[in-house]
Amino acid sequence: MEGMGKGRIAILIALVVILFGAGVWAITFWNETSGVEMSEHGWIALGLGTFFSLVIGCGLMALMFFSSRSGHDEAADPFRKHPPSS
């Protein structure tokens, strides 16, 4: 904690408070909905939503990786120093 300034400590405290609040909310919500049954259509919708979210996320990460490797991103950053061409 030696090199941390007041701003970093404040951000760290805020993030811990948000994490704690999200945990309390999740536990409360889980306990309130414990007796609710989900129909077959609900399980299908949950499965398809999860599957397509993963497909879209993996696809976007792959596009970002290939774009970075092919050099297309370098033209979009005018402040990056380019090595001299020989």
Score class of each variant (00 low, 15 high):
residue 2 E to H: 15
residue 24 V to I: 14
residue 8 R to W: 03
residue 70 S to A: 07
residue 65 F to H: 09
residue 25 W to Q: 08
residue 45 A to M: 13
residue 45 A to R: 14
residue 46 L to W: 03
residue 67 S to A: 08
residue 3 G to D: 12
residue 37 E to W: 08
residue 49 G to N: 15
residue 22 A to D: 03
residue 65 F to A: 02
residue 36 V to D: 06
residue 24 V to E: 01
residue 66 F to C: 01
residue 31 N to M: 13
residue 20 F to C: 01
residue 70 S to N: 04
residue 35 G to P: 03
residue 50 T to F: 12
residue 81 K to E: 13
residue 13 I to D: 00
residue 4 M to L: 07
residue 63 L to H: 12
residue 42 G to W: 10
residue 13 I to K: 00
residue 60 L to W: 06
residue 64 M to W: 11
residue 2 E to Q: 15
residue 33 T to I: 00
residue 48 L to A: 07
residue 69 R to P: 02
residue 66 F to P: 02
residue 27 I to W: 10
residue 54 L to R: 12
residue 27 I to K: 07
residue 9 I to G: 01
residue 8 R to N: 06
residue 57 G to V: 05
residue 49 G to I: 11
residue 70 S to G: 02
residue 50 T to E: 07
residue 85 S to V: 10
residue 20 F to P: 02
residue 47 G to V: 10
residue 43 W to Y: 01
residue 8 R to V: 03
residue 7 G to T: 07
residue 72 H to V: 12
residue 41 H to E: 13
residue 77 D to K: 11
residue 19 L to Q: 03
residue 23 G to C: 07
residue 66 F to V: 00
residue 80 R to L: 00
residue 2 E to V: 15
residue 56 I to Y: 14
residue 22 A to V: 15
residue 51 F to S: 01
residue 62 A to W: 08
residue 64 M to R: 12
residue 31 N to C: 07
residue 35 G to F: 00
residue 35 G to E: 11
residue 15 L to S: 09
residue 85 S to P: 04
residue 43 W to C: 00
residue 78 P to G: 01
residue 3 G to R: 15
residue 70 S to H: 05
residue 83 P to L: 09
residue 30 W to C: 05
residue 5 G to D: 15
residue 3 G to H: 15
residue 26 A to M: 13
residue 2 E to I: 15
residue 10 A to D: 00
residue 34 S to R: 14
residue 3 G to P: 00
residue 76 A to M: 11
residue 41 H to G: 08
residue 25 W to K: 10
residue 18 I to S: 02
residue 67 S to R: 08
residue 83 P to E: 09
residue 74 E to Q: 11
residue 44 I to R: 13
residue 31 N to W: 09
residue 70 S to L: 11
residue 61 M to D: 02
residue 7 G to F: 05
residue 63 L to I: 01
residue 31 N to V: 12
residue 7 G to C: 08
residue 55 V to H: 11
residue 63 L to A: 01
residue 67 S to G: 12
residue 68 S to W: 12
residue 86 S to R: 09
residue 44 I to Q: 13
residue 47 G to Y: 09
residue 17 V to Q: 04
residue 40 E to S: 04
residue 28 T to F: 12
residue 34 S to K: 13
residue 85 S to E: 04
residue 84 P to R: 13
residue 78 P to T: 05
residue 54 L to M: 15
residue 85 S to A: 09
